[in-house]
Design a protein around this nucleic acid. Structure first.
Lengths: 190, 190
DNA sequence: GATTTTTTGTGATGTATATCAATCTTGAAA
DNA sequence: TTTCAAGATTGATATACATCACAAAAAATC
């Protein structure tokens, strides 16, 4: 149990130093959650009470279009943050699904608690600021890749960037993440 | 001159309150820059010393592919932040171009100064944290729109979301932002 | 106000990728 | 270990969109 909090502490301290007092305060605002493969973390229409830091496991965040087709917004594994950020921030019903591709374990942080620790502990505000900034940069890169690259190039790019992910995730889901049909992806040679 | 700083102050205070003392400190870390239409704010290969808050004007951030085709990552106008965030954050040479579609005026913030005011004034850290979070949410929405919607739907969506932008920007650039050819966009009926 | 330059529109044609369908393979569950 | 569901592959066909080419309209520049 201590281990898990140790992991989270390390995650914070990669970005900002925290005193023991600060850390104890911060830590007390998280709770743990466990889910098995195929269980939902977030569902469309349901309240989104938390954002989640993944201790262990793998999830996919996705939306379903009118034709029932799944479009993957994000894969998230150990050391990643995931939520329906839009719904969470605005405290509105979920707009996407998030479910587990493997048995998973999370630290949960409510909006109220996040704001509390950010305004109470400046280093935490800076932590989330810097994290969020990196996230923003990554999404800009992904948008550029969607605008400028062919599906095959995006596939090659992903294989280089996240080789471990490819091992853990069925190719049909990779296809959905890349914005290409599974049949087309299957015809690429990589 | 005072007016401009007043605008920036309002921009901060929409998110977090600041004492006069804090504001004076923060304000002193910005400098003003003016550019005419067609001038570059950021160029590929050049240092990216600042991120910019737009006082007045309109810019496009874009990359050029091997075939010389332009892909627009972002339009930014009054009250928007813009930079080559990747290059800025990592203090590396520019990876994209940003140039002015209209005569424009900016507040410039260096990385050093940003970190300084964030660690000096917690409210500022929270300001950037919250702003960055909203930015992240917007980019996620854009990614979903690229994955789930047809080009025509994305166009309709943009017309509803940013009607003012459509007035100020040639349609060929809108096409490039939406990831569609100008000819195809021209055949849509909206 | 005349003249370039930029932007927009429209037809003809090409291409990457989607979709449909059938089979084969792999992995999970009982 | 067997059984059944999920994933992957491959062919045939359809389609959204790109590209090329040219003309018209609008806007910027002298």
């Amino acid at each position: 149990m201590e281990d898990k909090f140790q992991l989270l502490k390390q995650h914070f301290e990669e970005i900002v130093p925290l005193t023991d007092e600060e850390w104890n305060f911060v830590q007390s605002h998280f709770e743990v959650k466990r889910l098995k493969k195929h269980q939902f973390l977030i569902q469309v229409g349901q309240p989104v009470d938390f954002e989640y830091w993944i201790i262990k496991g793998l999830v996919k965040a996705y939306s379903i279009d009118e034709k029932g087709k799944e479009h993957i917004l994000q894969f998230a594994m150990e050391d990643y943050w995931v939520s329906d950020h839009y719904a969470f921030q605005h405290q509105e019903p979920g707009t996407i699904f998030v479910d587990c591709l493997e048995d998973s374990e999370f630290f949960c942080l409510s909006l109220e608690n996040r704001e509390k620790i950010c305004f109470e502990v400046p280093a935490v505000a800076n932590f989330f600021r810097i994290k969020s900034n990196y996230g923003y940069i990554n999404l800009q890169q992904r948008i550029l890749s969607l605008l400028t690259m062919t599906a095959e190039n995006r596939y090659d790019y992903l294989i280089n960037k996240l080789p471990k992910l490819i091992q853990r995730v069925p190719k049909k889901l990779i296809a959905s993440y890349l914005g290409v049909s599974r049949e087309t992806l299957s015809r690429f040679n990589s």
